[in-house]
C-alpha cells in the first residue's frame, strides 16, 4: 500500500491488539489487558500510544502487533469480491521501527523558579473565546475570569438546552468547587465518565488535571489517578499516560507553552482546540484550573502572585 510509518509512541506496550473503534483519522486497537494503541494520521500527530502513519486514514486494519523493532498491521476475515479493496482477507503490512520514528512524548517537569505567569491569562482568554460552547471551558469563565455571557455551554442556562446538559454543567461546577477546596480526587471522581463521545468531557478534563499534577510531582497524583479512572477503556488509556507524564502532541505543546510562558501559547491553544469536538477544550479546562490551584500552593506562591488574577 506504500504507507509510511512516521511515529511510534513511547507509552506503547508491546503485544497483540485488536480493533476497538475506527474514526476518520484514528483507529483504536486494544489488547486483552486493555492496553491501547491508536493508529493515527499525521494531522493527529504523535502521542504516547500513537502509531502515526501517513495517508488519509480510515485504514482497513483489524489487528495490530507491536514488537520491539516492528509494527505489524493485519486485516482479516473479509469476504472476497465485495469491493475493490477486498480481494482477499489476509492483508498484512509490516513496518520497521527505527530510532527516527520513536516519539518522545514525555512532559518536562517544572520547578517553581522556571514558572512564567505570562502565558496563563492569554491561554485562558483564548480557550474561552474559541472553545466549543458545549465543552467544559465555561468552567474557566466561572473560576478565573468571572461570568462571561455566552461562555456557558449552549443550552445549559438557556431555554433551548437539554436537561442533560444542565445537570452536566451543574455537576461540573460542583466538581470544580471541590477542586478549589483542594479535593482533587473528589473533583476527578465527580467528572469521570460524564459527557459525550467515547472519551467523555469529564475524562478529558481529568487528563488535564493529571498532567498538571505530574508536572509538579504532586503527592496527590496516585490517589487522583485512581479516582479518575472510569469504565471507558479509551479514557483510561489517556488518563494513565497523563499520570505518567505523557501526552499527545497538541496538549503537550499547550502545557509546555503555558507553563514556560512561551510566546506560541496562542498557536498551541488553537491546535489544542482542534482536537475533537470538545476534547481539547475539556483538557485545557482541567489543566488550567488545576494549574491555578497548584499555583496557590507552596512552592508556587511566588509565581501565583505574578499571575494577576
Amino acid at each position: 500500500m506504500g504507507v509510511a510509518l512516521l511515529g511510534v509512541g513511547d507509552g506503547i506496550v508491546p503485544g497483540r491488539y485488536r480493533l476497538h473503534s475506527r474514526f476518520a483519522r484514528v483507529s483504536n486497537f486494544v489488547s486483552d489487558r486493555d492496553d491501547l494503541v491508536a493508529v493515527v494520521t499525521p494531522e493527529v500527530g504523535t502521542g504516547p500510544v500513537n502509531v502515526v502513519l501517513d495517508g488519509p486514514g480510515d485504514w482497513p486494519w483489524e489487528s495490530l502487533e507491536v514488537m520491539s523493532g516492528e509494527v505489524v498491521l493485519r486485516h482479516l476475515a473479509k469476504a472476497p469480491g465485495t469491493g475493490p479493496d477486498r480481494s482477499w482477507n489476509g492483508g498484512c503490512e509490516r513496518f520497521r521501527v527505527s530510532s527516527e520514528v520513536r516519539s518522545d512524548t514525555r512532559l518536562e517537569r517544572v520547578r517553581a523558579a522556571e514558572l512564567s505567569p505570562v502565558a496563563l491569562p492569554a491561554a485562558i482568554a483564548r480557550i474561552l473565546d474559541q472553545a466549543n460552547p458545549s465543552s467544559l471551558a465555561f468552567l474557566l469563565s466561572m473560576e478565573l475570569a468571572g461570568p462571561r455571557p455566552g461562555a456557558e455551554p449552549a443550552g445549559s442556562q438557556g431555554a433551548g438546552g437539554s436537561a442533560f446538559e444542565r445537570v452536566l454543567a451543574e455537576r461540573a461546577r460542583e466538581a470544580v468547587s471541590l477542586l478549589a477546596r483542594s479535593d482533587l480526587a473528589g473533583c476527578a471522581r465527580m467528572l469521570r465518565g460524564c459527557g459525550y463521545g467515547l472519551t467523555p468531557s469529564g475524562d478529558d478534563f481529568n487528563t488535564g488535571l493529571l498532567a498538571a499534577l505530574w508536572m509538579v510531582e504532586s503527592a496527590d497524583l496516585p490517589g487522583v489517578h485512581a479516582a479518575a479512572r472510569s469504565q471507558s477503556l479509551l479514557s483510561n488509556a489517556f488518563l494513565d499516560q497523563a499520570a505518567a507524564g505523557r501526552l499527545n502532541a497538541a496538549p503537550r505543546s499547550f502545557v509546555q507553552a503555558v507553563v514556560r510562558g512561551q510566546p506560541d501559547v496562542l498557536e498551541a491553544s488553537a491546535r489544542l482546540l482542534a482536537v475533537g469536538a470538545t476534547s481539547g477544550a475539556d483538557f485545557a479546562a482541567g489543566f488550567l484550573l488545576t494549574w491555578k490551584m497548584l499555583l496557590e500552593r507552596s512552592p508556587f506562591q511566588e509565581a501565583r502572585s505574578l499571575v494577576g488574577e
Binding site: 437539554s162 436537561a163 442533560f164 446538559e165 445537570v167 452536566l168 455537576r171 469521570r192 465518565g193 460524564c194 459527557g195 459525550y196 463521545g197 467515547l198 467523555p200 469529564g202 472510569s230 469504565q231 471507558s232
Partner: peptide, 14 residues
Amino acid sequence: DAAVVMGTPENRAI
C-alpha cells in the same frame, strides 16, 4: 427534551 449519549454509569446518573 432529549439526550443522545454514551451509556457510562456517570451519564446514566446524569
